[in-house]
Design a protein around this nucleic acid. Structure first.
Lengths: 150, 150
DNA sequence: TATTGTTATACTCTATAACTATA
DNA sequence: TATAGTTATAGAGTATAACAATA
């Protein structure tokens, strides 16, 4: 395979990514018991790594505005998947944490989404999957917000 | 690189795709003059290839229900980017076509999104971009709805 | 005055259920 | 009766603008 031009690569990403994303969203939305939107899933995943994060930290990581994140959190709190706590050190801040139920819903959603993707990816050869996995790593490095080593 | 397990590959896709998607969405939404949501962009792109498609055909391709597609079309018609026509052969059907303005907005949105992606992808080496491009082709093949050879 | 969140408001996306018109 | 679309309704995602509380 020869070097690929920037524009060709960008065009390919623009063709393929929305397609895959749609499959992921549809799968997550239809999950019995762990029905989550993609932003909800991302928020839970973030809080799983960064327990006690503030609303601002979460908003920046997910890539939405404060009001959007506030609304997202409202929904997750209403479903008892996360808890809003007070920060004793700075009373302007809130402290967000996953509830046990939130952790279990996250694991379930992740597992089912992964299983569904795996089913599709089974159509590829091991070498092709290696290519996809490598590309995902590259894209993650390119689009990951700042520092975020995980 | 050794063969990658199905689950590893699926997990990597689940990590990276939402990240890239978010960048794409944000870019498109912020486009002066060609401000489009991703579903709107996909709908315009579909009609560019399949001029005169019915609502059902579009809904199936985009992957949404009839009512969702009907609403999506409402918005695009209101912005005069597409036109709803009558099908003389079957009066239940509608015929969807891109207006000249719709075609131009599509090209502009595509160009700007591509340019923005290219800017990010410039951080990769030509070999890495080749890997990404190949992976996108594989994913497109896996997730493309049926026949759709283009 | 600057920062952290929330509320108010307004769109779009999306689904299900119920309905209309045509075949 | 079956198919193509629309309308009604509802909830989530998202933004900007305006506000409240704390630092």
């Amino acid at each position: 395979m020869t070097a690929t031009s920037l524009d060709t690569c960008a065009r390919d990403v623009l063709e393929a990514v929305p397609l895959v994303m749609h499959a992921v969203r549809t799968e997550m939305r239809g999950n019995r018991g762990a029905d989550l939107s993609v932003p909800q899933f991302r928020a839970l995943r973030f809080l799983h790594r960064q327990a006690g994060a503030s609303l601002s930290a979460a908003a920046e990581h997910i890539g939405v505005t404060l009001p959007s994140m506030s609304a997202l959190v409202d929904g997750l709190v209403a479903r008892k998947l996360i808890a809003r706590g007070a920060d004793p050190a700075d009373r302007r801040r809130i402290v967000l944490t996953l509830t046990p139920r939130g952790a279990s819903v996250l694991e379930r959603a992740r597992g089912e989404a992964q299983a569904h993707l795996a089913e599709k990816l089974a159509a590829l050869s091991p070498e092709e999957r290696a290519c996809v996995a490598q590309a995902m790593g590259l894209l993650r490095a390119v689009f990951m917000p700042e520092e975020a080593g995980r």
